[in-house]
Design a protein around this nucleic acid. Structure first.
Lengths: 351, 351
DNA sequence: GCTGTTTGCGTAAACGTTTGCGCAACTGGG
DNA sequence: CCCAGTTGCGCAAACGTTTACGCAAACAGC
């Protein structure tokens, strides 16, 4: 086995120069003659020299070349259709800067905070992306106190942000959906929401309520059905109850596409035609949304876009010598994806 | 800003011992008195000392503490419900050994092979997981030649394996599905498959055909419908054609759950009752499979299990001083998940 | 009370890279 | 011809660990 790992000294020896010269030539530093630089570059390439990352990190004192992704949810798998896209886009965003993204797995017996503390302590990462923040989040307190670069994906409940974050504007999306349906003549609305107190639930619900209030039309009414996220039977029951109510809505907003798809199924089971008898709008634009019949009108949260923004913001933080007074933040407007599950309210839907 | 990064020397100075002693004490090495060891451990913990990973890697000459995951598909996002689970379980598996998992993003202009070459060259990773292998795969050739530790998730077309792999036994699963349906009286079968030439298509189709052949019943017939993976309209058309055929099958196997769900929808549209008129079995056990009506009978590929196995195998390879003659491999039997979309064939289904 | 072994720890080298400093060789102005 | 400035490069230190080697003290055998 040749074990042919080339070091900078090998290159230097081959060329008859010092290691320092090779280093400077490859780094594009000044005070190196163009000829020497060219010779070094060619020889290095031809010898297959690649700098040892660990040595670079060590001398740099920082810059491991890695960025960590902290995933809160231990049950990654289930709702992960978004996760793959998010991770992929994040990785691509960092790759442009020569940075690798690693996943910080949280071992069984360890708290997330201790893992973060460890990453910061061992300098395993130069920065962190925190996915899915809680409304009040000790991880954020720790990282902010340690002055460690990080960006969260999701907001906290803080009024004035103490850290950089990216989030999707669920409130604006649900307001837009309401306005669209209102313009189509709908007055009786349903909202299918989840039981779990996630921050996106708060924002989307709030956005819908604000839009209703803003309209100020006393004709508008709203019924809310709350469904668990992962229990098929109870989900069907909750939605079925909403749709078989005598004053059933003519338009239903679902907090996430999974719920919207169940609305479609229940509607079919009850003999309601979508969109003639019922309009349905979801959120997330999951794969099945396009495949459903009728195609589900929904919002694209632009996961890839927000992932790239997170990457960009984190890189900016890491390379900045000084921290800006006000942390950067970005609210991304979800994009309405018009398909076939919404339409004008049927004339005189009385009875 | 305190910049309070503690090094091993800080601990040594505080204790009045040498750095070597601290290192040995923390490493659990021999030739250290129990009292000294205890004092070192306590002081280190209390000072918040954590070893610098880069320095450790450098002196070790190997062992960056990272393992890379190579994802072939640039369009991660779409079929990624499995991806999240896979990545999560991989990360957890490696975390047990103190190893971090990073995602090797493939930048636009770069080939996957060059990325791998770079990772091996810069010693950024101690090992690699290759997800989704092609039938003939240059990456595998390179890594095998470089004697770099790696495990693939999926097989190649090689008869005798030249590398370690983990895969799910799609052939056995589809044979099991056939036998189950045959026992329930089904004789006219349908297979909904994909257009793309993936290796799992080959294995599952082959398993079904072998099971049919093995049975040797001339009554058994099979119709195949081929559908694109991501085109809703064409997918519905292909499946609709299969189900409205005069000799339509009484039982349909779908290569993946997404297709199976479309079969359920088309069946409903055609007025066919599942499972009374039609049995449907899928593969993957995606989230929607449990939420569908009726619940979809399918196979759980046990992604988490195989991910953990991959991690275990890679760790074994990395820590082994010598490479075993025959690389390890593991074929995981998918687990049948019985729900409500299959049943006995209706008596005298003629007409 | 010699010699040989074990125990406990310190010294220093090494891992591969970057970079401040110094020095020789030019260059050019006077 | 002298001096100041510039250019091109080498020397050596430094980053934070681990570990081979050495050495003193304690211990054992006779």
């Amino acid at each position: 086995m040749p074990e042919g790992r080339k070091t900078i000294k090998d290159v230097a020896r081959t060329l008859g120069v010092s290691a320092a010269t090779v280093s400077r030539a490859l780094a594009g530093h000044s005070r190196i003659s163009p000829e020497t630089r060219a010779r070094v570059e060619q020889t290095a390439r031809q010898m297959g020299y690649m700098p040892n990352r660990a040595a670079q990190s060590l001398v740099a004192g920082r810059s491991s070349g890695f960025v960590g992704l902290i995933l809160t949810d231990p049950g990654y798998g289930r709702e992960a259709s978004y996760l793959g896209e998010f991770i992929g886009a994040l990785g691509a965003g960092f790759a442009e800067h020569g940075i690798d993204l690693f996943l910080a797995a949280i071992p069984e017996q360890q708290s997330e905070l201790s893992v973060i503390r460890n990453i910061v302590g061992t300098r395993r990462a130069d920065g962190l992306i925190i996915a899915r923040t809680a409304e009040v989040d000790p991880r954020i307190d720790f990282l902010a106190a340690a002055r460690f670069p990080f960006v969260t994906h999701g907001r906290t409940a803080d009024e004035v942000p103490r850290h950089a974050w990216v989030d999707s504007d669920g409130a604006a999306a649900f307001a837009e959906a309401f306005d669209l349906l209102y313009a189509l003549g709908h007055r009786r609305f349903g909202l299918v929401t989840i039981e779990e107190p996630m921050t996106f639930r708060m924002h989307r619900t709030e956005g819908l309520l604000r839009a209703i209030t803003r309209r100020g039309d006393p004709e508008v009414s709203l019924q809310i059905a709350t469904s668990p996220r992962y229990d098929g039977a109870r989900r069907h029951a909750a939605i079925g109850a909403l749709l078989s109510h005598p004053w059933r809505p003519t338009a239903v907003l679902a907090l996430i596409d999974g719920l919207a798809l169940t609305v479609l199924e229940e509607a079919a089971a009850l003999g309601l035609s979508v969109p003639d008898d019922l309009s349905v709008i979801g959120f997330d634009n999951i794969t099945s949304a396009a495949l459903a019949r009728p195609g589900l009108t929904t919002f694209d949260a632009q996961t890839a876009l927000s992932a790239r923004a997170s990457a960009r913001m984190l890189v900016a933080q890491m390379s900045a010598d000084t921290r800006p007074a006000l942390p950067e933040s970005l609210l991304i407007r979800p994009k309405l994806v018009l398909r076939a599950s919404h339409g004008a309210v049927r004339q005189t839907p009385r009875g």
